[in-house]
């Protein structure tokens, strides 16, 4: 039971990270109809800048404060220089151009920071653990990540329901022509949405820093999971992204933790571990397939 709750929290924490990644990306897909493979690069940029500033200043907060504008600025630049020219092109062009961006950013970080991964320490004031539920100590840092995720979720909710710009973004996601006809400055809106997305990705990156190794190419593994989240949730839907992120986070974490035990009930130990390892690594994709068979457009599609 103890282990279960702990794993549940781990799943929640992965889900939150994925939500930060997918919330921005699903908007880019939904509003601009652009498939952007380079989203993981901004996650990586966030992590590298955060790690470097934290190491230099000794302050994790300063690291975050540096990572966010860095990711947002990089996003803005990419939008203006490259993405903007791709809105009217077909998906294949977008795939190839953003693939080129990934190559560029990965190699650039190797040039700047070298091939060795950087390691970030958990800041001392978050290094301990807290008993959220009596008897179950859980690392403070991971709880902080979950808290930040919830704050961002609430912020996005307020942004989209209470503010003018949020309404415009939502209008753009469900009907671009309509939004244009209402006199929304589409160009500026696109740049803003894109850099909001990359800012969130940068946030996810810097928060992942102390948990994972900071290295070139770190953006790609989370990118694919982000895609799975978006496919499950439905393109363009923030609520879908939240639901999908939590599902993927939980299924992945719980699958890795409990499938071996579960399978040992039926199979011999050695065999069970092998099968469980394979199944666990594929579990989120199997989940995606199952959902797609019933809901080809995701659980909560934006225009439906």
């Amino acid at each position: 039971m103890l282990l279960f709750i702990e794993q549940l929290l781990n799943g929640l924490q992965l889900g939150i990270m994925l939500f930060l990644m997918s919330a921005g990306l699903t908007l880019v897909f939904g509003i601009m109809q652009v498939i952007n493979l380079a989203h993981g690069s901004f996650y990586m940029i966030g992590a590298y800048v955060g790690a470097t500033v934290t190491a230099r200043t000794g302050s994790f907060i300063l690291g975050i404060l540096a990572a966010l504008p860095a990711a947002a600025l990089a996003g803005m630049l990419v939008e203006i220089l490259v993405l903007r020219r791709l809105y009217k092109k077909d998906h294949l062009d977008q795939v190839l151009a953003t693939f080129g961006l990934i190559m560029f950013f990965n190699e650039l970080t190797r040039i700047i920071w070298g091939r060795q991964p950087l390691f970030m320490d958990v800041p001392p004031w978050l290094a301990g653990s807290i008993e959220l539920i009596p008897g179950i100590p859980y690392p403070s840092y991971r709880i902080a990540v979950i808290a930040v995720g919830i704050i961002v979720g609430v912020f996005l909710y307020l942004l989209f329901t209470r503010t003018r710009i949020g309404m415009q973004i939502r209008a753009g996601a469900s009907n671009q022509e309509m939004a244009g006809a209402l006199g929304v400055n589409i160009r500026l809106l696109y740049t803003l949405v894109f850099s909001l997305g990359t800012l969130l990705a940068g946030l996810a990156g810097v928060m992942a820093g102390p948990i994972l190794a900071v290295e070139a190419g770190m953006g790609e593994s989370i990118l694919i999971l982000t895609f799975v989240v978006i496919v499950i949730g439905g393109i363009g839907s923030i609520r879908g992204a939240l639901l999908g992120a939590l599902l993927v986070g939980l299924v992945d974490t719980l699958g890795r933790a409990f499938l071996p035990t579960l399978l040992r009930l039926f199979l011999s130990a050695a065999y069970a571990d092998g099968v469980a390892a394979s199944l666990a690594s594929m579990s989120v994709y199997i989940l995606m397939v199952a959902i797609l068979v019933y809901r080809p457009h995701g659980l909560l599609p934006a225009n439906g």
Partner: peptide, 25 residues
């Protein structure tokens, strides 16, 4: 069963699924 952006992401996800399958073998 899907098309456009979905198709791209799903083929990508399937290939990664097989990738992780072979990693776990």
């Amino acid at each position: 069963r899907t098309s456009g952006m979905h198709f791209i992401m799903i083929t990508l996800a399937f290939s990664q699924m097989l990738y992780y399958f072979f990693v776990s073998l």
